[in-house]
């Protein structure tokens, strides 16, 4: 019995340390307390809503989020804007639709069922507008980077003057958390860049945290449901395991052998 536990834990530690070692090759990331971590982790609703504001006012001018729809903003487990608010948000975007009965494409205000409007029509257009660098789609960005939320959070605050021994080309910036320290994106956030509706002070740190929380949700929209179900499932399994254990003891007591 004990050895079974031992083996499991050894293997888990080996696997975990292995996968962490990929992330650990960079500078120590900035830490903050994420409300969505842990067994009962949930998103901070207000932070998600602020994060959406940062995304839409700042990031969205270059970064698409092609797997999200406006309806997601009103769904449980997300920013949970009211349906009226989400409809208003959707309607504030011009969506190209068609062709109509005349064979023409036309624009109309967005609806809840529409996907997030993309800043560029295609990858080439995005590259042309950004000096050849493609601003990655942000839908699953958090899961697509080794350090996850800590990496994104740190990167947003990691802009510095380049050390004297590093020379930067035009349109390239120095970021101490970026792989190779060179990044094509200028520091996107600055003190007071957005004006939060709820009166929160829009420091770079605050905005980084809010938008990273939003990105975590966009990458894992069912995270809360997953945590809740996980807790129930594991408690259920533990209780069942205990019951089965005693049944097993009872049954095996008929033969003089230890289980």
């Amino acid at each position: 019995m004990k050895s079974l536990f031992k083996l499991f834990s050894i293997i888990i530690i080996i696997i975990a340390s292995n996968s962490y070692s990929f992330a650990a090759e960079k500078a120590e990331y900035l830490k903050t307390d994420w409300s969505f971590k842990g067994l009962f982790g949930k998103f901070d609703r207000a932070s998600l809503q602020r994060g959406y504001q940062v995304y839409t006012e700042v990031c969205a001018s270059c970064h698409s989020m092609k797997y999200l729809s406006y309806r997601n903003l009103a769904e449980p487990g997300g920013p949970e804007f009211s349906e009226v608010q989400a409809k208003a948000i959707a309607a504030s975007f011009e969506v190209t639709d068609g062709p109509n009965s005349d064979g023409e494409m036309f624009t109309r205000p967005g609806k809840l069922s529409d996907k997030f409007v993309m800043p560029y029509n295609n990858v080439k257009a995005a590259q042309a507008a950004n000096g050849g660098a493609y601003p990655p789609d942000m839908s699953v960005l958090v899961k697509a980077r080794g350090g996850g939320v800590d990496y994104i959070y740190s990167l947003l605050q990691g802009y510095e003057e380049a050390p004297s021994n590093v020379s930067l080309d035009d349109g390239v910036y120095y970021n101490k958390y970026m792989y190779g320290n060179k990044i094509r994106m200028a520091a996107p956030l600055s003190e007071g860049l957005v004006e939060y509706g709820d009166g929160t002070n829009a420091t770079v740190e605050q905005m980084s945290k809010d938008v990273t929380t939003f990105l975590m949700w966009s990458a894992e929209p069912h995270l809360e449901a997953r945590h809740q179900m996980g807790f129930k499932a594991i408690v259920y399994l533990i209780i069942l395991t205990i019951l089965v254990y005693f049944s097993m003891k009872k049954i095996w007591s008929r033969v003089e052998s230890e289980v």
Binding site: I12, R226, M229, G230, F231
Partner: peptide, 9 residues
């Protein structure tokens, strides 16, 4: 239980 831990957490 180990399986569920990975899947959910």
């Amino acid at each position: 239980i180990v399986f569920a831990f990975f899947v959910f957490y």
